[in-house]
Design a protein around this nucleic acid. Sequence first.
RNA 1: GGAGAGGUGGCCGAGUCUGGUUGAAGGCGCUUCCCUGCUAAGGAAGUAACGGGGUAACCCCCCGUUCGAGGGUUCGAAUCCCUCCCUCUCCGCCA
Length: 418
Amino acid sequence: MIDLRKLREDENYRTGITHKGVDPEILDELLELDAACRALQGEVEQLRSEQNRASKDIGRASPEEREGKINIAATIKSKLQEVEAEYGRASESLSEIAITIPNPADPRCPTGGEDDYEVIEIVGEKTEPPPMDHAEYGEYMGWIEIEKAAENMGSRFAYLMGEAVLIEFALVQFTLSKLVSHGFTPVVPPVLVREQMMLDAGFFPTDRQQVYELAEDDLFLTGTSEVALAGLHRGDLLDAEDLPIRFGGFSSCFRREAGTYGKDTSGIFRVHQFDKVEMFSFCDPLNSWDELENLRNLEQEILNELELPYRVILVAAGDLGAPAALKYDCEVWLPSEGRYRELTSCSNYLDYSARRMMTRVRGDDGNPLIHTLNGTACAIGRTLVFLMEHCQQHDGSFKVPKVLQPFCGLDVIPPPTT
RNA sequence: GGAGAGGUGGCCGAGUCUGGUUGAAGGCGCUUCCCUGCUAAGGAAGUAACGGGGUAACCCCCCGUUCGAGGGUUCGAAUCCCUCCCUCUCCGCCA
């Protein structure tokens, strides 16, 4: 959730929000409600103070005096109840709007939408399309079973099979061991969370239609382990010397992919379920921007070691998710499509999620909210897509990237003999 | 799924039956000071968070909220009532 005080005091904060495409009128409305709320809060608190005094007075009073004093307190109470009801209504409509306001975009974000990204860095060479795209190759190698998945589960599901599974686990081991060496604690988090968790992590209400819901149990399947990881320090007051606290979460991820009809329909580029290793950092607000660069460096290191050609872009304000203030995407060259496609990303949420989570750091001058950051270490399914195209040899064999070989015991996987 | 017990400040733990200066005894821990050749022991004081407001600003002051969460009863709730969440014990079931 955004910082209402900053919104009314800091012009830059406001423009950061409008850059995300929020109508300024909504912000004005919000500020009016906020002012009204605070005024009412003052009234309520003053009346409550009077009432508290009156009640305490009754406790001290002699039995003869009580009747009269109770009457006095009762009239204060009825007045209080009126104002309280009004305040309740006001603050409810305030938070109803406030929760929908995205975190302001950082000034470094390019303005505009999806196509207005800024290219930061290009690594490696664009390559020619291989004989088969990943979907064809996956079927050829017996790694991806889509037809049976479609019959059993519907569209956008796949069985991952054979050596692809070994490579998946090699990717997990490879990235997790790298993260551990950088001070990340590995986590296998629950993938079902309560609605409150979704709200507090900053995913609801904006992304609600992307999430699978188990209505019977008021639980939601997470689209990324980030959601559960964010809750790992709910309500905690942390010591600065313990920060940053870094977690590497491994989990399956579930996405409804609503509104993507017709997009990426072949293969496993975009499916309802995939596995992912995610980085998450609880960071001192003083150096969260450095931490973002750390996460980006790690992502690039992983791509470098997998020998994938990619570019890094700075995502434009209008294309950021609600909680992100700044986001880098690493886009890998997909030869069959002749374009870069998103594989990993990292972003700084600043205090947007921490505000609802009430995760703070002990300070000399108050206890400020910590900053949370997250980044993809390895989106496994999609990484396999890129590997299937880049490591595919002309004889149909698959050359396992060097860094993965120790983790799966494979170097060159021959094509099927039949 | 069935039966029972319980959730109080950084931690432990009273208070709940019998509602009233209880933001909450006591202990531990922590901070500062004193004592001590050093350490240990001992003595003194302090020690929650969040929100709103005052102030040029604050280490300052005022007010409010918080005893798992949300409602209710009452002039007044940690204490009484309802709903929910969580933890523990026993039984059942189970990877």
